[in-house]
Design a protein around this nucleic acid. Structure first.
Lengths: 361, 361
DNA sequence: ATGAAAGCGCTAACAC
DNA sequence: GTGTTAGCGCTTTCAT
């Protein structure tokens, strides 16, 4: 049986469609309570629910939002961002169209056109990693960018505060007493890499620790890359070897665990490590659980949706919102191991390294 | 500036809206080529693109699909399923509404109503784990179930063939020469657990290996649970201890790695392990990379969308489609360690265990 | 080969 | 307080 239309309700209640429309939309109280009641009952009786398509055509507002993303699928991050956006949409009575372009520019174009044709009230352009993007033509200036920033401004956007996150991570180590702190970076060079490195440097500086270039090392962003980098670090002579390692991400931190455990090093007794991302399947399941910095995906998703829907007042253009990355304390950070006492020397440095093992020569 | 409407094109081309519509939709060739040309140019000139909402109202087909899921967000699986569904939708010119209900029944109801009001042409009801669900009222019988089966039939559905997957996993171990093969199961009791166990039993049976209840052990579905279960198994006396372990999932397998490595056991030299799920961040990044059974999420998503859209002919009701779970061979399976020769005894069993270390008494 | 006109289901002026 | 009516932008008979 076909869906009931507004005219069916009107007929059943013995009123005009206007009246039905008015009571269904809770407009003015010019309708008598008695009529209201009758209409409500009639609507229930015939099983009426307004047709959003017809309403959308008439009002020119569809209460739908388009969310275009480059890679919703392949990253385990996506979910939280979607969830945040999703929840915010529902809270405001909106439905969301999700389109994953896989990063393909043509698909992206088509997606934008399709969404526009569908008369979405707002659009969100999301990336799965903090990136700087060249927003494709055709996207309205009212579009909100999620986890990315426009190459030349002109859009509202929200990204994680990776710089502050890097600082916070390193401060954990400093607070535990570490002085020789390494940063295992990625060599892929995403914007987050640069920012976290800046944060690392800043935390070092504020603690009065000179940055040692030998402790800034790179690898690919996998457990394998992290492990390889850690091997290099752990091969350093005792007095140069880091006691704490900050990793670009949790996967690399997992690699550090492997390297450490293979050498019989205990975490955090012999080595402290801090990750980044707070990937559930990795960070929480390490042994011991990994202290890391969380990417505020849910909050970012929510923020983007709220701004897109206009329920959160935000400068109308060009504002990049930095969202805090909280430190998640678990068990991979402890005090540095007791110093190996080295008589006649206070501190070893690269440049003024004293001759080692001279007797052997 | 407002979007161009079909009448604008008609005016620009000096024809009627009917003609424009006919041309835009490539209907019959009753329009002369010359007129076609003119209309096309006019459309381009005024930047015309049909309004999907108006078209949807008129044709009663919106070319949109609703995808309701219980937990898109919190599981790293979701992505591949979405991607499959998404891609199939795009291939056929459909847009998808995504709604994550978080498992909340009321939200689910509202979602169904909203989608119905939005006149979606089809719906997919997805779960993030293979489950048996009580499909809520209001979902049309044409809805397709993804990664779940209806408690009392009546819907088309697609789920992974967990039983065959379990068999395939254990066969890997059998083929490598193992005879004492354990199954580390979950105690949460999802349907997949039962099926994979059945598969395990079947593989054992076909290899003529009697099932040893001591080798079927459970734990919670985390690395921690897997590790605890592995400890128990590895504490077994030499001749009862399994040489191969099949785990309910990759996370638990990661726990087995930890337990093994802590005891100085090498994988796969001293112990072979097979996981399930093929979670990228876990399986591929283990050291050595984990052999596992993949859940065909992408294919299931695609299948569901294709039958939902009617582009894949499938029995119109009540058909549960089982999708194959392929074994992903990596490096965690090898031959069992050489047997510790035990003179005077061919095989130890629980009941007839010979006195150990008698000389010490 | 092309056009006029009805109508999808709804909202919102504008009557009464 | 309530009803009539004109569209929203499009497709689709039915004329011509």
């Amino acid at each position: 049986m076909a869906r009931a239309r507004i005219s069916d309700v009107a007929a059943a209640a013995g009123v005009s469609v206007t009246t039905v429309s008015l009571v269904m939309n809770d407009v003015e109280s010019r309708i008598s309570d008695e009529t209201r009641q009758r209409v409500r009952e009639a609507a229930r009786a015939v099983g009426y629910a307004p047709n959003s398509v017809a309403r959308g055509l008439r009002t020119q507002r569809t209460r739908t939002v388009g969310l275009i993303s480059d890679q919703i699928a392949t990253t385990p991050f996506a979910g939280r961002m979607l969830a945040g956006a999703q929840d915010a949409a529902r809270d405001n009575g909106y439905l969301v169209y999700l389109i994953d372009t896989g990063g393909d520019a043509e698909i992206e174009r088509e997606a934008i056109d399709a969404l526009t044709a569908q008369q979405v009230d707002a659009m969100i352009y999301a990336c799965m990693w903090h990136r700087i993007v060249d927003v494709p033509q055709g996207v309205s200036a009212k579009t909100v960018l999620l986890d990315c920033r426009p190459v030349k401004g002109g859009y509202r956007s929200v990204v994680p505060d990776d710089r502050a996150g890097g600082t916070a991570a390193v401060r954990e180590l400093v607070a535990a007493g570490h002085r020789r702190i390494a940063y295992i970076d990625t060599d892929d060079g995403p914007i987050a890499s640069r920012l976290r490195h800046e944060g690392y440097l800043e935390a070092l500086a504020e603690a009065g620790i000179p940055a040692d270039p030998a402790l800034h090392i790179t690898g690919d962003t996998s457990a394998h890359g992290g492990r390889a980098a850690a091997e290099v670090l752990l091969d350093l002579p005792d007095d140069e070897r880091p006691t704490g390692i900050f990793c670009f991400n949790d996967r690399m931190a997992a690699g550090v665990y492997i390297a450490a455990h293979r050498r019989g090093l205990d975490i955090p007794r012999d080595l402290s490590v801090v990750g980044y991302d707070d990937q559930q399947l990795i960070a929480a399941e390490q042994d011991p659980p990994l202290t890391t910095v969380a990417l505020p995906h849910y909050a970012m998703g929510r923020w983007a949706m709220e701004v897109a829907l206009g329920v959160r007042a935000e400068g109308d253009e060009d504002a990049t919102h930095l969202m805090e990355c909280p430190v998640i304390r678990r068990d991979s950070v402890g005090p540095p191991p007791a110093q190996v006492a080295k008589p006649n020397r206070r501190r070893a440095s690269h440049t003024e390294r004293p001759p080692l093992a001279a007797p052997d020569r």
